[in-house]
């Protein structure tokens, strides 16, 4: 085991898969010679060459289109979108092509493409460098959508994604690339991954299956469903208020580990859903619908959700926008106030 940041763990996942399979390549803007703006592909150009750490033009639609063709021809391209906010020029290739190719061709053609994208806010990135668009992709049939919350999971999930024969949208919360984050600007940069248990990462190849949630904290009072950066904010909120919450890191949004979710809510009878993304038609709405369908007769309180507001991500009001520990604690207390 080695202490790794999330960036190093992602780099290690790419290195492990590229070493094992000559058909794996990384491609995207600045991923080759430079090693990526967040350094996730650092060293791969030197180790595997310019054709396997492939710099591309600034054309996200072209990058994904080309990756689909490569995937059809036997390669396993791992595409980096420089920011999740830049994914939209590629959305037709992702939604109309990548997601549906296997189905529309009766199983004749498919493209095992992974699209990695740094997402989320808390970095003073304004509205074009802070978005969490996961709900757009979970709504598309034929895509798997994943968002890890720590280095250990990031590596194991990314290896599974690359080795999966279906397309995977792999969101990396960039606020926690270099350390966990507890939801307030005063903690910015205060803690690294080296003192966190999930910052210990094996150097060798391992997989974490897609579609399996992680119960981070067992509890009996309320179930908290979250993923990505909000896992750490929620954990800090639970510790701060002393509520005996069961905290579930979903890790994989689609497929969703509904069995783990339903078992927990059936036990606690209460549920709070937390995500950074905007509220209306967000992934939380889907979670709440599934929970009430599966657990209605066990529920003792309305399901709460804590999300970003339905506005573009504001530069100046980042901490008023970001779902804070305070907002999470208030939601937990509201749900516990019901008898």
């Amino acid at each position: 085991m080695t202490a790794m940041t999330m960036v190093q763990a992602i780099n290690s996942a790419l290195d492990c898969t590229m070493a094992r399979d000559p058909n794996v390549l990384v491609m995207g803007e600045d991923v080759g010679f430079f090693g990526g703006v967040f350094r996730c592909t650092e060293g791969l150009y030197e180790k595997y060459g310019a054709h396997r750490a492939l710099d591309t033009p600034i054309a996200e639609g072209g990058i994904v289109g080309a990756a689909i063709g490569m995937g059809v021809n036997g390669l396993r391209p791992v595409v980096e979108m420089q920011f999740a906010d830049y994914i939209y020029p590629a959305i037709d290739q992702i939604i109309s092509e990548l997601a549906r190719l296997r189905h529309r061709s009766g199983g004749e053609f498919w493209a095992p493409v992974v699209v990695r994208a740094p997402c989320g806010g808390g970095i003073r990135g304004g509205q074009t460098h802070s978005q969490s668009p996961e709900g757009i992709f979970t709504h598309v049939c034929g895509l798997k959508t994943v968002m890890p919350s720590n280095p250990y999971d990031a590596k194991g999930l990314l290896i599974s994604a690359i080795e999966d024969d279906d397309p995977v949208i792999f969101f990396e919360p960039k606020r926690i690339y270099n350390g966990p984050f507890y939801g307030h600007d005063s903690s910015t940069g205060a803690v690294g991954w080296s003192s966190h248990p999930a910052g210990e990462v094996p150097e060798e190849h391992y997989r974490i299956p897609l579609g399996k949630a992680n119960v981070l904290r067992a509890g009996s009072a309320v179930t908290v469903l979250t993923y990505g950066t909000m896992v750490h904010v929620a954990q800090a909120a639970v510790e701060a208020c002393g509520i005996d919450a069961e905290l579930i890191d979903l890790r994989s949004l689609l497929p969703l580990d509904l069995d783990t979710v339903a078992a927990s809510v059936s036990k606690t009878g209460r549920c709070v859903v937390i995500h950074e993304a905007t509220r209306t038609s967000g992934y939380g709405a889907e979670l709440i619908a599934e929970v009430q369908e599966e657990c209605f007769w066990h529920l003792r309180a309305p399901i709460e959700r804590v999300t970003g507001w339905d506005t573009p991500y504001p530069h100046a009001f980042e901490w008023e926008y970001f779902p804070s520990q305070r907002r999470i604690i208030e939601a937990l207390e509201r749900t516990l106030a019901f008898d």
Binding site: M70, Q93, S96
Partner: peptide
């Protein structure tokens, strides 16, 4: 290749296929 109703998407896919070749 499987024909798409979303016009021209196959163009960049063909380039990617050729790049892989």
């Amino acid at each position: 290749f499987s024909i798409s109703g979303n016009l021209a998407t196959q163009y960049s896919q063909a380039v990617g296929w050729a790049m892989a070749s």
